[in-house]
Design a protein around this nucleic acid. Structure first.
Lengths: 208, 208
DNA sequence: CAGATAACATACAGTCTGTATGCAAATTTG
DNA sequence: CAAATTTGCATACAGACTGTATGTTATCTG
């Protein structure tokens, strides 16, 4: 009768405490910064001790990486949920853009994913995470737009990265209080600029 | 005869040790990251003690801010030096772009200015620094291009920020080993995309 | 149902940051 | 120009944090 909680399998225990740690860390990392959040505070919020943390994660960075991974997945999921994939290429791009900017309004997300993430894990690691989640749809959208609308043929990798960077900066600016419409307008103009289809003007692309 | 070094005015001393501290910090912050560089190491390299550091700077962040400020100024100076301001709007933009990408190849600069800077000081503070230095010419170039070539009329603030973000990401990618030509091509295409007036010779260039 | 192993908690060592204190050189002041 | 004061900086200290080592209990295995 006192064995209610003791009847947990080892795997369940691991899974539960890992989830608790990630959840507590996520809350704190989005409220404060990575540097300002100490492991004692995290484990206290999770209801365990630092022993548990260092049993499940190599170090503080590894826990942070798990949080980032989860949050990036959440953003990607929100986007996918908000933008039905069966639209015309450019419409899908626009819908995805708005969904991304909306998703990044969740408190602390910009700092977690756009400031602390790159600084703590490095740009390469963040690229890897992004490519596994959100950027995939962006890249596909851009490639589709390029293909469908004779968008200027450009290296997909670089194009995706630069657009992602612009979206990221827009999210940061909007959170800082800048005009969301201004940034949205510029983003749309950038997309539009690469899709010279509407008027069938001869579009020379001087790259050098 | 033993008073050679003691014959320094107070202001000279301050200036000298401040410069020594910033130089030592710059070297270490570009070799390692902000978090990995401790104040004991910095003061040792500068030949002073931590007492001097905390006498001249409020905290480690303030010293870091001074380093960032100086480095941003150096980048801006390199750009200005490399791109004569008396060219046609778009040519000036292109020259400035290349100069920026070249300047950011200095070891550790991308991490200092593009990763640690925003994370440690915040995006707002970095924007303030950027606007005081490098971004000014970018903004002016964009505005000039908009004006001269009937470039799509867009909010200058947002346009500048998003282009700056794209350039930043390009610098990071190039340093990470990505194809500089690919990124350059995309950047040029983005600029081109906003200038619907074809120059003169529409010769399509293979960018890939 | 022992023995091994996994999931923790506790204790410890090392390092770092920021502050407080002390002292000598420089500057100011009467 | 001597006394008082301020400045520049070194040393000493307090608190906190990270990662590791050790111990203990619960689970899994043969």
């Amino acid at each position: 009768m006192q064995q209610d909680s003791a009847r947990r399998s080892n795997r369940d225990r691991t899974e539960a405490t890992r989830a608790d740690l990630i959840a507590a860390a996520r809350k704190l990392f989005t409220e404060k910064s990575y540097a300002e959040t100490g492991t004692p505070e995290i484990v206290a919020a999770a209801g365990v001790t630092r022993g548990a943390l260092y049993h499940h994660f190599a170090d503080k960075q590894a826990l942070f990486a798990a949080v980032v991974e989860q949050e990036a997945a959440a953003v990607a999921e929100e986007i996918e949920h908000a933008s039905p994939p069966s639209l015309f290429a450019r419409d899908a791009l626009i819908a995805g853009s708005d969904a991304y900017l909306a998703a990044m309004r969740a408190p602390g997300r910009t700092r977690l994913l756009l400031l602390d993430g790159p600084a703590v894990l490095g740009r390469a690691a963040m690229d890897e995470i992004d490519n596994r989640h959100g950027n995939r749809s962006l890249r596909e959208g851009l490639v589709a737009a390029m293909r469908a609308q004779t968008m200027t043929r450009l290296p997909a990798e670089a194009l995706t990265a630069l657009f992602a960077a612009a979206f990221d900066r827009a999210a940061l600016a909007i959170e800082a209080g800048a005009s969301a419409e201004d940034y949205r307008a510029v983003l749309m103009a950038l997309i539009e600029g690469l899709s010279p289809a509407p008027p069938q003007a001869p579009r020379p692309v001087r790259t050098r």
